[in-house]
Amino acid sequence: MNIDIKHIAKLSRLRIEDDKIQEFETQMQNIVNMVEKLPDIEDELVLDEDNPMILREDVAVTDKYTRQELMSNAPQVKAGCLVVPKTVE
């Protein structure tokens, strides 16, 4: 299996510096060679019906946090909104 690190990095929204590509590629190659060693199990995946997740009631919570609290960690805020680069030309 050949690993195309540039392609995987792109899918991962990561950018690998040119001088580090070779190192990452070798390491990823070794890791993939290790995890490849899996037996063929002739079976199908089924959901665990004995342990269903129990979801809480879907109720709107309006007064738990203020907008300011929720936005306090945002890198850039303007007029109570998150600022991002222009996405539509």
């Binding site: 690993i3 690190i5 995987i8 990095a9 990561l14 990452f24 990823m28």
Partner: peptide
């Protein structure tokens, strides 16, 4: 790329792969 270290990048890329 600036916020994550190399090990985190490796795991994200392995997972993506």
């Amino acid at each position: 790329s600036e916020g994550f270290g190399d090990e985190v990048k490796r795991r994200i890329m392995l997972g993506t792969f």
